[in-house]
Amino acid sequence: MEEEFEALMRRLPPVAEIAPDRVERLIDGVFLRIDRGEAARPAHSWRDFLRSLTGPLPPIRFAALALAAIILGAAFGQEIDSTDTTGTTTASLFTANEFLPIGS
């Protein structure tokens, strides 16, 4: 039985040496399919993103990030100001704390 089994496994179709031009055609096909959008680009992790900040052109990237932060900060600050015009924001914060006497 053991010898028969070995013979069975070894009798599976043999593979001739793989021709180099077949390999090249296959590789071309892979790149073609990538260009057609059949495979999503490798996903970048946060670590990759942080690493990219120290890569080429970091001043430009830092400047872009700083500008984005300023814009976001300005928009956020504007919103706080608009809710604070009546003074209710501050008042509600204090009244929500039962250990802090109102009006103290």
Binding site: L26, G29, V30, R33, I34, A39, R41, P42, H44, S45
Partner: peptide
């Protein structure tokens, strides 16, 4: 080919 496309996608 399909396996290599998987490699391209999952390399990260």
């Amino acid at each position: 080919q399909e396996s290599f496309l998987k490699v391209w996608t999952l390399a990260g």
